[in-house]
Amino acid sequence: MNIDIEDLTKTFGAQTALHPVSLTIPSGALVALLGPSGSGKTTLLRILGGLEIPSAGRVRFDGQDATGLRVQDRRAGFVFQHYALFRHMTVFENIAYGLRARPRRSRPTRAEIDRRVHRLLDLIQLPDIGPRYPSQLSGGQRQRVALARALAIDPRMLLLDEPFGALDAKVRKELRQGLREIHDSTGLTTVFVTHDQDEAMELADVVVVMSMGRIEQVGPPAELRSRPTSRFVETFLAR
């Protein structure tokens, strides 16, 4: 699914989180929103996911206006910064949550839910952790469970907020590869937020550099490195 963002603005009281920003994300792309804290990247991601309502501007999914679309109807697989796993539910119940929340007409049967959850557990290469609680998992395992939970709803896009932020360096590298593989096998349009330029440059097809609520530059990693259009991009990538 491709995403068109047109003159999107967001203010919180007197603070402007996003100055009008426009961006087109082609279907199937793996896009990084890169910038320091306070650059508006998370706000942009949350607007795409329907968790924030923009003050002005439009969002289109495949050309259809989705600006006012309810969060429940967006089918956006969202992975939260600290994963936000339901701590009172087992891993199985976490992943099954989205399927069980469907209206009765479109809700899969028990056997079907069981089958799908196990297929997702296989996909994240943790086939045996279904009965465990989130508190019994390592950080890397939690991240993968959060990804499986987001994928369970058969999403139209994947949105990830600092998906590797809370992990140590070694696990981070492994999981980057994991996300790349999941993206390539599902073909989902994927947008992730990061403040780590290495991560953005290594993983993404397209990097969107943001600062102070504005988009500084958009392009493939190689292009950003060879032809930065502003001083900010140049220094931020050089760190």
Partner: peptide, 25 residues
């Protein structure tokens, strides 16, 4: 509110999120 938001993105109504996520917590 992250867990509640997660429930909403997974398609749960506000009431369902309250019942299945907020209240147990």
């Amino acid at each position: 509110r992250a867990e509640e938001e997660a429930a909403l993105t997974l398609g749960a109504s506000g009431w369902r999120a309250f019942r299945t996520v907020t209240l147990p917590n």
